[in-house]
C-alpha cells in the first residue's frame, strides 16, 4: 500500500527534514534538521511516528499538495499557519487526506516554520544515514518543488484532532546566552550594548542563520583569529559590527568572533521569530544554562508524551 501526494506549489526553503545528522561536524557537515525541533517532534509523535521520522518543513512561502492516492493522515505543528483542506484549520492539527483532496499551508498570524508529518514512511533520499536536507548542497531528502511527487509507504489513518500548542512553542524574544567564546574581543561598552540593547531580525534569514539589526558590535581587535568550530546558536559578529545568529544549516567552522552563544533550548523559539521582530539577549552562567536546559527537556518530554498517538 502506498499513498501519493503531488506538490502543486512550494515556497522557497520547503524541504524534507528528519532529526538531523549530528556527528559529522569534524568533516565539515553541519547537523541540519528542523529549525524548530519541538514542533517537528510534535507532528511526528501526534501520528504515532518515531520522533525523528522524515517530515516536511514548511517555510513562510507555503505549500500546496494534491492527494493523488490515499487516504493518509497528516499532522501539522509549528507556528500559527493557515491550513486548508475542505475545512480550515490552524497549525497544530491532525487531519486525513483522501484521493482528490488538496492541502494548502500558508503563512498565518505568527511563526516562521511549520512541520507536516505523514502517517507512514516518506520515500526520500538519505545522505550519511539522514534525510535532513542540507540547503547549500541539496544533499538529503531534498527541497520540495512544484511537480515533485511524494510517495508514502504503509500509509495509516488516525483520528483527526487538534493538538495543544504549548506556551514554550511560541516565538521567544528574550534569548539566554553564555558570553563568548570571544567576548574578550569586545570593549566593555560594546558588551553592555549587546546585553542591554534591542535587536531585530533582518530579512536576511534562511536556514543557515539570520542577520540582526541593532547596536553596532565592532570588535576592538584585528580579525586574525584562526578559524574554529562554531555551533548552532552562535552570535557571530562580522568586521562591520553586524551580528548573525547561526541556525540549523550553519557552517561548521568560521573565523569571525562570537560575542555569545544562545542556549540550544531557546533556539526553537528563536526560529519562530520573523524578520523585524524584536530580540534581546540575556547572559547566564554555565550553571544556569544547564538548569534551563534540564527544565526545558523535562517540559518538552512531558508535553510530547501528552500528544503522542497511542
Amino acid at each position: 500500500m502506498t499513498a501519493r501526494l503531488h506538490v502543486s506549489a512550494a515556497g522557497p526553503l520547503v524541504s524534507v527534514q528528519d532529526a538531523g545528522r549530528p556527528g559529522f561536524a569534524r568533516f565539515g557537515v553541519t547537523a541540519s534538521g528542523p529549525m524548530d525541533r519541538l514542533a517537528f517532534a510534535t507532528a511526528n509523535v501526534a501520528l504515532g511516528n518515531s520522533i525523528g521520522a522524515a517530515a516536511i518543513e514548511v517555510s513562510l512561502g507555503g505549500l500546496k499538495l494534491d492527494c493523488v492516492e490515499g487516504p493518509v493522515s497528516l499532522a501539522v505543528a509549528g507556528g500559527g499557519f493557515i491550513v486548508e483542506t475542505d475545512q480550515k484549520f490552524g497549525s497544530w492539527q491532525v487531519l486525513t487526506l483522501t484521493a482528490g483532496q488538496s492541502l494548502t499551508i500558508r503563512r498565518g498570524p505568527w511563526g516562521s516554520w511549520c512541520y507536516l508529518a505523514i502517517a507512514g514512511r516518506l520515500e526520500c533520499a538519505t545522505w550519511l544515514g539522514s534525510s535532513a536536507t542540507l540547503g547549500t548542497s541539496g544533499f538529503g531528502g531534498g527541497k520540495l518543488v512544484a511537480g515533485r511527487e511524494l510517495t508514502i509507504h504503509a500509509p495509516r489513518v488516525v483520528t483527526a484532532r487538534p493538538l495543544a500548542c504549548p506556551v514554550f512553542a511560541r516565538p521567544r524574544h528574550r534569548l539566554h546566552v553564555t558570553l563568548g567564546p570571544q567576548d574578550r574581543f569586545f570593549a566593555p561598552e560594546t558588551l553592555r550594548d549587546f546585553q542591554k540593547g534591542l535587536f531585530a531580525l533582518s530579512t536576511a534569514y534562511d536556514r543557515m542563520g539570520v542577520r540582526l539589526s541593532g547596536p553596532e558590535l565592532v570588535p576592538n581587535v584585528a580579525l586574525t583569529m584562526p578559524s574554529e568550530p562554531v555551533t548552532r546558536g552562535a552570535v557571530q559578529v562580522a568586521g562591520d559590527g553586524v551580528a548573525t545568529l547561526l541556525l540549523a544549516d550553519h557552517q561548521t567552522t568560521g573565523g569571525y568572533p562570537k560575542i555569545a552563544t544562545v542556549l540550544d533550548c531557546d533556539l526553537d523559539g528563536a526560529a519562530q521569530l520573523r524578520s523585524f521582530d524584536a530580540l534581546m539577549f540575556r547572559p547566564v552562567t554555565p550553571a544556569e544554562a544547564t538548569a534551563r536546559a534540564r527544565l526545558h527537556s523535562a517540559l518538552t518530554a512531558r508535553y510530547l508524551q501528552s500528544v503522542t498517538q497511542a
Binding site: 569534524r26 565539515g28 557537515v29 542540507l134 548542497s137 544533499f139 578559524s227 557552517q251 561548521t252 567552522t253
Partner: peptide, 10 residues
C-alpha cells in the same frame, strides 16, 4: 580541519 562545506578539508 574541515569547514565551509561538506568534505572541504583545509
Amino acid at each position: 580541519l574541515y569547514g565551509f562545506a561538506p568534505g572541504y578539508a583545509y
